[in-house]
Amino acid sequence: MSALDELRQLRRGGVQVRKSDNRAAFWFLAPWFAGLLLVTIGPVIASFALGFTKYNLIQPPRFIGFDNFLRILSDSRLHNALRVTFTYVLVSVPLQLACALGVALLLNRGLRGLAFYRSAFYLPSLLGSSVAIAVLWTQVFGTDGLVNRVLGFFGVEGRGWISDPDTALSTLIVLNVWTFGSPMIIFLAGLRQIPEVYYEAAAIDGASRRSQFRRITLPLLSPILFFNLVLQIIHAFQSFTQAFVVSGGTGGPSDSTMFYTLYLYQQGFSRFDMGYASALAWFLLLIIAAFTAINFWAAKYWVFYDD
């Protein structure tokens, strides 16, 4: 624990900018700067500007002031989309990370056939965004799917879980948890980076497994846990493909899987209202930025860095 206190003190002291570092940083960041200027910044500015226009993708954009942003306040289908998206983020991210961390811890220890299990658990993630997912998910949660057959065995009558507005979102949450492979791999890589000597020393001191986990694994894995948390939240807010593929692009039934980005996409590409879609994108950016800022602020209290 004392290491954390030390770290906090270091933080308060602030970081000194070194002159030689400036020059080095320029060269190390040169590709990134170039990318920012050549690839990223133009489209970003364009999308911001389009947010203040009516733009149907073919005729020139027409300036309409804040109309698109005002529409956000009164668009009831958008409010539903926000509700759906928040539910999805708040439920699926913790579940997915817990699964990923749990399995990674299990697979990190010596166990026969490790490579096999790792691969087996990763396989679903390979399929995650494939178009076949729509059909495969019906095979699990559809009327004639696996879940209903298991339920039928116990005499419980099932339903079409994907096509019932009360349960459709839950199946997408399960789908997201099912593809926990990516954060799992990142956790595994992180676990592999913890020097074995720490555990050896702790074992000599007679520390139990549990206390080793609390005192060594958790703090040393915290930067990775933090990374996964931040990125999975951003990712979940932008979740699109799975809902798009499973609902056939509609966000149905009854808008129950209408994610924010899916709604945005429909505005831009089905209704040809790219102005409103751009405004929606910048509104989403604000929400995600707020969540990320909170995350970074909270990180001060639980993420441990060695620098």
Binding site: R159, G160, G248
Partner: peptide, 12 residues
């Protein structure tokens, strides 16, 4: 039933 109907009709 509605959920079956919607599932089959949406699936192509």
């Amino acid at each position: 039933p509605p959920s079956v109907t919607v599932e089959k009709a949406s699936a192509g």
